[in-house]
Design a protein around this nucleic acid. Structure first.
Lengths: 192, 192
DNA sequence: ACCTGAACACCGTTCAAGT
DNA sequence: ACCTGAACACCGTTCAAGT
């Protein structure tokens, strides 16, 4: 066995199969051995393409955030962008099994850079927000999406919540409240 | 070895040491074997007191939420309670290493009950909120605290955020915005 | 009632060796 | 350059057996 017709592995192929495996077996089932088996390869082969499992899960996490950001259509004000980004991220997290847990457990990729931060803030700074307020707003919206998605998946509040309230609707209301409140703050402290 | 002077283990003692171990070695270091060693006992002994590791981590998670709720002083309106609860929870999560990750990974204890839900909502329903809106508000505040605490710990946004913004202050601003927005929603949709 | 010793089926990771 | 085979040091968990 372990004969694969295609040439060699590449990171994108591994990432694609990793998401499929995550969906099928959950975060606990996302092991290097199981992933290798899906790829018709032995587990150590993955270490040629990734330094360790943490790098793999970090890249998966980055893909999730990137998809959410690129799903936002341009146009509108800062608050519109925040609402759309929050909905896109929450949808991705609610759609992909254990995605919230994956993201919370993942470790950052690079040591940081102001360039990366300002590029993340860009959709809001071009709409008139200061970059610090922009990062804070994105962080809060991301937190809300991660939290509600984790309740949806399995979290400790899930048991209390599931048959009392509609979790998707609850996230939407929380998001609207948050963005409303952030917007009020912006008006007190004017931009640029 | 493995001679312990005190009588027998009990759940509270195990939970206490589990929190110490979590603080010292992080979530990855919180293994049944390492925990047993701290308690001068062999790992299988823990299975007399807990059905499995999931039960242990669920109880740890519940303890964190319970502490946050009981740290809120009585008095004030619903929005005051939400602010105080959010701050208490965030403080607990930021203070205890890997606490946010622990909570997100933990699994619910019981299948659910309307009694439990309404007792969680109680601090807000006694202040005039409907129980559904109360649970939604608590869920959103909890999400915000979990999310920001996970960034603080290690999360994927941490790299982008740490030297740009003050994460504690960012949480505080997000919390105020959220509660402000929720409050506005309450006034549109009056209570009881 | 409460715990130990030994074992099972897994992990992530390393590393020499193959091609 | 890319992958295998074998091994290391771990996991959570079960279960007979001890006291």
């Amino acid at each position: 066995m372990a004969r694969r017709k295609e040439k060699t592995l590449n990171r994108d192929e591994v990432l694609r199969e990793a998401f499929v495996l995550l969906d099928q077996r959950g975060l606990a089932g996302l092991s290097m051995r199981a992933l290798a088996e899906r790829l018709d390869v032995q587990a150590p082969a993955l270490y040629w393409h990734f330094s360790d499992k943490a790098e793999l899960t970090s890249l998966m996490t980055r893909a999730i955030y990137d998809e959410a950001r690129s799903a936002v259509t341009s146009g509108g004000m800062a608050s519109d962008w925040l609402l759309a980004y929050g909905r896109a991220l929450h949808h991705r997290l609610a759609t992909q099994r254990d995605a919230a847990r994956l993201c919370v457990n993942a470790v950052p990729l690079e040591p940081s850079s102001k360039d990366a931060a300002s590029s993340i803030a860009l959709p809001l700074t071009t709409r008139g927000m200061e970059s610090e307020a922009a990062l804070e707003a994105i962080g809060s919206v991301t937190s809300l999406a991660l939290g509600w998605a984790s309740f949806e998946a399995n979290g400790p509040m899930h048991a209390f919540l599931e048959d009392i309230i509609d979790i998707d609707r609850s996230f939407e209301r929380g998001l609207q409240a948050l963005v409303l409140g952030l917007n009020a703050g912006i008006q007190i402290q004017p931009s640029t």
